[in-house]
Structure formats: C-alpha cells, structure tokens
Amino acid sequence: MGRMSERTNEETAPSEYAERVLETAEAIPPGRVMTYGDVAEWLDEGGPRQVGRVMALYGGAVPWWRVVRSDGHLLPGHELRALEHYREEGTPLREAARSAEGHVPRIDMRRARWDGAPAGE
C-alpha cells in the first residue's frame, strides 16, 4: 500500500519540465497565443507532444487557451470555452468557411502568435 500512495503523489505532482511549460503558458499575454511547438522551442526542451501532454494533464490551472495547434484550429471539445476567452481577450480570429463543421472560427496565427518578446518591442 505504501508504494501505491508514493506513486500516486509522484503522478499528481507536475515535473520540473511541466512547471516550466505552465509558467510559459502563464507568460503569454492576453489576446496572444503560442503553439505547442513554440513552447517547446522557447524552453529548448521537449517537443509539441510533450507540451500537449503537460497541458492536457495540468493546463486547467493556467490560461490553457493560449497554447494552441499550429494550424489555428481550436482544441476539440473545448472550442466554445476557448472562444469565450478569445473574444474576451480580443485574440485575432479568422471566421470559419461556410463549409467548416460547426462554423467554428480559427485563430489568426499570423496576427495572434506571440514570439516571447515583452510588449512594445
């Protein structure tokens, strides 16, 4: 029984890498986004899948909607919640094509993507 509780604690506590991913997500200004790959590159560690895994496990505690897919499509199953945040923060969006399922807009990556530079630079 002792082993199991140790393992559970280990699994629930974010690793140092996960903490760095979450800190990066928190640093993204309102109305801007970084891709999973951007975050990995910024940290100079891991890749898009590792960042995505951290966000899936622990992202609820940070502005998860600011870490996105590189194609600008919204996270399946979280589109409406994310859209509320994007509209509230003024994140640049591209309206969906009439043929798009559910007519959900995408993020305008050219305008919304953040490169990590402080505001005004």
Rank of each mutant, 00 (worst) to 15 (best):
G31H: 02
M34I: 06
G116F: 01
L93E: 04
E19K: 14
P118M: 00
L83T: 05
E101D: 11
V39C: 10
L22P: 06
M4P: 09
D108M: 01
R113A: 03
P105K: 01
S70V: 12
E19T: 12
P63N: 02
R3P: 11
P48N: 05
E16H: 13
N9I: 10
D71A: 05
G31T: 04
E11M: 15
R113W: 01
S5A: 11
V54E: 08
A40Q: 02
A100V: 12
E19Q: 14
S99E: 13
G31W: 00
E6P: 11
D71Y: 07
G60E: 11
P76D: 03
A27H: 04
A61K: 11
L80R: 14
A97N: 11
G31F: 00
P30Q: 06
G77F: 03
L93M: 08
R111M: 09
S15P: 15
G46C: 03
P105W: 06
I28Q: 03
R66A: 04
L75Q: 14
E16D: 15
R20N: 13
P14H: 05
R20V: 08
P92G: 01
G2K: 05
L74G: 06
H78W: 12
P29H: 03
D115N: 12
A96I: 06
G72D: 08
G116I: 03
R113G: 01
P92S: 00
P48D: 14
I28L: 09
R94F: 07
E10K: 15
V68I: 09
R113L: 04
A13I: 14
P105E: 09
R32L: 05
P29M: 04
R106N: 12
P30W: 01
